[in-house]
Design a protein around this nucleic acid. Sequence first.
DNA 1: CTGAAAGCGCTTACAG
DNA 2: CTGAAAGCGCTTACAG
Lengths: 330, 330
Amino acid sequence: MPKTIYDIAKEAGVSIATVSRVFNSSNSVKESTREKILKIADDLGYHPQAYAQGLASKKKNSIMLLVPVMSNYFFTEILRGTQDVLADENIELTILNINQEKGVFRQVEQIIKRQWADGYLLVSLHLSQQELQKLKRYKVPISLLDDHSTHFDSVSFNNEQGGYTATKYLLNKGYKRIVFLSGSKEALPNKERYKGYKKALAEFKIKPDESLYITGDSMDRDGFTEKNGYEAMCKIISLDEPGEAIFCTSDIKAVGALKAMNDANVRIPLISYDDLSISEYIGLSTISQPMYKMGCQATRHLLNRIDNYDIIICDHIHNPELIIRNSSEI
Amino acid sequence: MPKTIYDIAKEAGVSIATVSRVFNSSNSVKESTREKILKIADDLGYHPQAYAQGLASKKKNSIMLLVPVMSNYFFTEILRGTQDVLADENIELTILNINQEKGVFRQVEQIIKRQWADGYLLVSLHLSQQELQKLKRYKVPISLLDDHSTHFDSVSFNNEQGGYTATKYLLNKGYKRIVFLSGSKEALPNKERYKGYKKALAEFKIKPDESLYITGDSMDRDGFTEKNGYEAMCKIISLDEPGEAIFCTSDIKAVGALKAMNDANVRIPLISYDDLSISEYIGLSTISQPMYKMGCQATRHLLNRIDNYDIIICDHIHNPELIIRNSSEI
DNA sequence: CTGAAAGCGCTTACAG
DNA sequence: CTGAAAGCGCTTACAG
C-alpha cells in the first residue's frame, strides 16, 4: 500500500537510481528532473524507507541514547546538549529506556547486536568494566556519559569530589555529626560520594559513624525518590542523637527530607546533589553538574568515533560545584 | 565485520532458512539443531539485524512514542503505562523527541513516511484536525494521548472540567478576584482550562477580568517553567488589586509562584495542575490526572489497531480530580 | 524438519 | 546527467 521508489520512478519516467539520487542529495541530477521527482514524491507521500536505506547503504544515520530513567531534569539537560550538537548533522536520534530490573547489560547487548543505530550513547548505565569489555567486541561506536571506562570515550563527574566538597562545607561550619542520606548502597555514584564524605571526615579526624549512614525503605529507582527521602528523614529525626547536618545524595530525596523536617517541625542544615530546575526555587543548597555541556561533549565523542573508529579514546571528568542556598543555612 | 546469518548457517552446517527459523521461534526446528545454532550465535555475538528483518518481514515489531518534552513526571508515568502493556508483547519501544520549534507536523509526517515503526503514539502533540486528517492517508496505526480527534484513537483529559473544578472550589471558598495564571495563551490545554475557569466564574455571575489573566515573560516550553511562574507571580503581587486566589495551569509554574510569594512575604491561596511527584511534598493543591492508566489505554489502542487496522475508533476522555493540600488553604 | 529461491525497498559502483 | 544490475541481510511460501 505505501508508495515505493518504483512508484515514483514510474510516475516520473526515470529509473529508481535517479529517484534515489534525489533523496541522497547527489548533485548529479538535472534540476528539472529533481524538482519533478520531489513534486511527485510529495504528492504521493513518499520518502525512502529508513530500514531499506539502512540495509542498502549500511549506514543508519541515527544514534541511540540509552537511559535508565528519564524522569528528571538531569536527563533533559543532557538531551538538550545532544540535540544541539546533532542540529546540523542530519542524524536521527532515538531514545531507548533501559529497564533496570531486567538486566541492563542484556538489554544493551541486544540492542547493539541488532544494529539499531550507528552509535550508542550510554547514559548513567554503570556497567561493570567486565561488561564494557564484552561490548568492545562488537566494534561499534559507544560513548559513555556519567560513567567512566578505559574501553570507551567517557564523560563523567567526579562524584567523590562532590561528596567531599559538600561534607567539607558542613564540617567547616562546625557540624560534626553529619548524616549521609543515601540512595541504594550498591549504586556506584552513591559509593563514590560516600568515599568523598569519608575523606572530608578524615581530614577533621572524625570516624564515620555507621548509624549516620541512612536511607529510606522504598527502593524503586534505586531509592532516588521523594518518598525514600521522607522515610530516611523520619529515621534521622528519631535517632537518639539526631545528627547536626545532612549530606543528601539527591535533590529529589531532599524534597522528601525537607517535608519530613517540616512535618516534625525540626530544621537541620542540608546539602543535596543534582541542582534540578526546581532546586533554585525551593532553596536547596546542592552540588551542581554541567549537564548540558557534558551532553554536548559525549555526543561529539560519539560522532567522531562514528567518523573514525580508531581515534584515541577521550576521557573527561568534570568537577561538580557547590551552590549554597537556604537549606544549609540555618 | 559483524556476523550475518550466513556465518551462522555455515558454521552450523545448515541453510540460512533454518537459522532464520530459530530466531523466529518457529517450532519446526529439531531441538538439537536449535541448540547448536543458538550456541554458535551466542559465541559469535549474532542476532538478526533489525533493519533486514523489518524489510524482509514487513513488520518492525516496534512502536514509537513521539513527545515534545520529556522532562516531567507526566511523561514518565505515561511511559510506565506503555512499558507495562508492552511487557509480554515482544515489541520494542523507542522514543522520539519532537522539537516544538521546528514544525511538529513536518517532523511527525517525516517519521511516518520513513516507516520507522508499526505504529505511533503521539503524546501531547496537539496537531490541528486538518493536520491529523493529512496523516490519515498513510493508513498507519496512530494513537493519540492528551489530544482528541475523530480520526484516530485518543485518550485525553477534560481540561475544561479541570479548570472549572479548580476555579469553582476557590469561588466556593468565597474568593471573587481569581487570577488565571496561564502558560502560553496559544497552547490548547491552556485555552480549554481557561474555558472552564470562565464557566465557573459565570456561575457566580462574575465577569472575567482581563487584567487577571497573567503569564510570565519567559516563553520557552510554552511558558511551563518555574521561571515563568515566578515572573507571573511578581506581576500579580504588584497589581493594584492583587487578586484573592490563583488558579495556576501547571505545578512547575506553581513552584515558581510559591517562591515569589515567599520572597515578597505574601500568601495567596493557589491551586495548580498536574500533580507531579514533588507536588505532594511541597503541599500543592492541584488537579490530578490518571496518567499511568491513560498510558496503558493509549498503548492498547495502538496494539489493537496494529492487529487490525479497521476496528472502530476509541475515544476516552478522563475527568481530572482535585486534590487539596496546603497551597489553597490559607 | 529442512533447503532453494524469490523478494523486501533501497544504494551504489560501473558504464555510458 | 542517467540507467542496468548486483547486493545489503533477512523472511517465507513452496517443495520435499
